[in-house]
């Protein structure tokens, strides 16, 4: 008898855990979907031609931010992608993923990945704004962001390269291809779907980042920068600016644009992956 009641209580306890898991799932979905819905509902109505493409002299516009975001993406991706891919190639193809040097580089990359973005911002501020006395500039922001996304690209490229079967490398070398040719014509293309996904994710991080930019590109929201040596702004930074200066509607509208941007990037990543898989067959 006693055992039976105990078992009943026990069952009740686990059922209550199950119920709480439903509740938590509900809370999580409400919160997350709530964020999106809130932004969409609040912001969509406030998107106007002036806000999107207007002249900064006529009122609030995110055109400078849009162009700034594109420039930051261009600078940081052009710097970080070759560097990151080459680092991964060195680790996997030349060091066979083993040894002291590899461990040192991996540890460094892991540590870089864990540094909070504001520390990168501080670093960019100290190096580019102060030490090199460039002042706030797109260059400084772009380079700082490049260092920030480098770990992401190195790690996922490394993983993709490690998943390329050795038989591909052997096949190419046995045909008389040099090591470099094997890497560029066989190994990297076979790993390309993973690499492309990681690059798109890195673009996503650049687009989302704002803390780094406050300290490196400044927050000049009403002027389209004439050159990369000038200060500027980005979409994420504009949201902060609008929210902080009592314009939550404009902030929400900018957030809608930024969300669509991020969504488009995710779709692009999925599409690229699909196309590459189609081109190179099933296991690429």
């Amino acid at each position: 008898m006693k055992n039976q009641t105990k078992a009943k209580i026990n069952k009740g306890f686990y059922s209550s855990l199950k119920i709480s898991s439903y509740i938590c799932c509900g809370i999580a979905l409400t919160a997350l979907v709530g964020v999106i819905l809130f932004v969409m509902i609040r912001g969509t109505g406030h998107i106007s031609l002036q806000l999107l493409f207007g002249d900064p002299k006529d009122g609030d516009t995110i055109l400078p931010a849009f162009l700034g975001t594109l420039r930051l993406v261009a600078v940081s991706i052009l710097l970080a992608v070759p560097l990151g891919i080459f680092t991964a190639v060195f680790l996997v193809e030349y060091m066979r993923g083993k040894g002291k040097l590899v461990r040192l580089i991996r540890l460094t990359v892991e540590t870089l990945a864990a540094i909070p973005s504001i520390v990168y911002g501080l670093f960019g501020y100290l190096v580019f704004v102060v030490a090199l006395s460039w002042g706030y500039s797109m260059w400084g922001g772009g380079i700082t962001l490049a260092v920030m996304i480098l770990p992401t690209i190195v790690r996922s490229t490394e993983e993709s390269l490690l998943s390329v079967p050795d038989s591909y490398r052997e096949g190419a070398l046995a045909l008389g291809a040099s090591k470099v040719r094997t890497i560029f014509k066989v190994t990297l293309p076979s790993a390309s779907s993973g690499i492309v996904t990681s690059v798109v994710l890195a673009v996503g991080r650049v687009v989302s980042e704002s803390a780094v930019l406050i300290l490196t590109v400044g927050m000049v929201v009403n002027k389209i920068p004439a050159a990369l040596t000038e200060p500027g702004t980005s979409l994420a930074l504009d949201i902060y600016y609008f929210a902080n200066f009592g314009k939550p509607d404009e902030a929400a509208a900018t957030a809608v644009v930024l969300l669509l941007f991020v969504l488009a990037l995710n779709l692009l990543a999925a599409l690229c992956g699909k196309l590459i898989r189609k081109k190179y067959g099933d296991n690429a």
Partner: peptide, 21 residues
């Protein structure tokens, strides 16, 4: 899928949501 997508939302948008809601 949705949750993975939400992982990519810029933090400043969470901040905006917090500030306004």
């Amino acid at each position: 899928h949705l949750i993975n997508l939400l992982a990519g939302i810029p933090s400043v948008i969470y901040g905006l949501f917090g500030m306004v809601v």
